[in-house]
Write a protein that binds this DNA or RNA. Structure first.
Lengths: 255, 255
DNA sequence: GACCTAGATTTGTCCGGACATTTGATCCCT
DNA sequence: AGGGATCAAATGTCCGGACAAATCTAGGTC
């Protein structure tokens, strides 16, 4: 193995690539054990450190399992990509109960500071219109959730329509501005009801809350709307129902 | 640093934990440069290899950036969720990170009392085999989640295989018993780390936790496996990424 | 056949060393 | 003031070695 020349990969990467190639081609099969470290040392004329660095690359890709005393076992032919499953329709995914109402509480222009930029995964300093709203059910005394919607400022004129036409915010933007949602990214994580939201949500500060962050991307690949919702734990559950065999009727799917 | 005693962490992990603690506490601040490798060698009386192994742990957690000629810069006070789950197919939906291990902690027969029956959405009085397990990431010092798996008693024989063949529990049942998953229902809600789980999860009691309940239904429409997982809030984020236009290659879909 | 022990195999951890590469700072010359 | 060369500092890569720990297998004994 001869690195050191210009543009050549380090030895450990060359070895990693060779092993990955063997696995991808099926020469090394899932379930099989790789040659031991010492054997690879002999075969490729490199140090054990180099071999271990190469194997670590495969490990990071999820292609192999290493275990002391046992050896290195192939466990996937290809590293798994990060993609998403298909659902019926985004509107169904986003849907709240039919009898719920979204009531805008406030709106203001904000510039994304470092913390907000990280939360929204946008550029620090970028400007957004922040619309805060409370969703209530007619049938329930307590609010369902609190949502902060961040819009590109050019879509400010949809704010008066929010909660009024039975459409979701991104649908209002599609309807009024011709913007087209190409991709939606949804993140769910555990949060807590903050002191600030305890009042509006009528929930004890510090109680559990389900945080859902949604990014709506247009054709150009940039997000034009981002929403952050807090759902007190006892009032909201996010559910998926998967069934083998059904083909989604919508054109939404994983990419 | 004195490892070698029973149950003690390797030196590189002790050093990693010390540095992580400094970063989490703010003693090492975001944007600051860590002491160089040679300085850490001198300060902690370990080899440069050990220092580099420790720094790799921080790197894997997303806490630091290392660059040749510049140094090691702190870039996050806390690690981003240990795992962001984005998926292509339902089987991937159920998958956890490539380098995670599920370790069975206990198993016992239980009869569903009223509370459990409601949680599991099963009949009160029905009998289940409850298997408790902890999932850990190789690359993360803290456990990812705690899972209670409830199985029909007739599938008790798969328990010794759990965590051993790289298969999910329902796949073990399919493989060993010919049971067929026809439908999976996934529910996400906000929870809290209970007193009981604070120890095993190494997370403060009362801190937020993402609860995921999964029901696996067979052809007859009855659930044969139900799992309840608790993920401390700072270690897990559930993500969906939807894109218009692509057709899923799998036959699963929502209904 | 079951059990126990010893040995072999394999990866995990740790050490010390050396050189390569990258980056930034400093100094000198024009 | 600007540009180039040099040097120092830092991480990246590679080597060889040693011992620890985990696992499995073979052989012997009961």
């Amino acid at each position: 193995m001869t690195p050191g020349s210009h543009g050549q990969q380090p030895r450990y990467r060359q070895l990693a690539d060779a092993l990955i190639g063997d696995i991808n081609r099926g020469r090394l099969k899932v379930g099989e054990t790789l040659p031991g470290e010492l054997e690879l040392v002999g075969r490729f004329k490199v140090s054990r450190h180099t071999v271990r660095e190469a194997l670590r690359v495969l490990d990071d890709l999820g292609l192999i399992d290493r275990q002391q005393g046992i050896g290195t076992v192939v466990r996937a032919r290809q590293s798994s990509p990060a993609y998403v499953q298909s659902v019926r329709t985004p509107s169904e995914l986003m849907r709240y109960p039919a009898d719920s109402r979204l009531v805008v509480v406030s709106s203001a222009k904000v510039k994304a500071n470092r913390t907000l930029a990280r939360l929204l995964d946008v550029r620090t300093g970028s400007e957004w219109l922040k619309v805060s709203a409370l969703r209530r059910l007619k049938s329930a005394p307590l609010p369902l959730n609190w949502t902060d919607v961040y819009l590109l400022p050019e879509f400010a004129d949809v704010v008066p329509q929010i909660g009024k036409r039975g459409l979701l915010v991104y649908q209002l933007i599609e309807s009024i501005h011709g913007e087209h949602v190409d991709r939606i990214q949804v993140q769910l994580r555990a949060g807590l009801v903050t002191a600030e939201l305890a009042g509006p949500l009528e929930s004890p500060e510090g109680s559990p809350s389900l945080t859902i962050v949604r990014h709506y991307f247009g054709r150009g690949g940039r997000p034009f709307e981002i929403s952050v919702s807090e759902h007190p734990g006892d009032r909201y559950m996010y559910a998926l129902d998967l069934q083998r065999g059904w083909q989604s009727s919508d054109t939404w799917s994983t990419r």
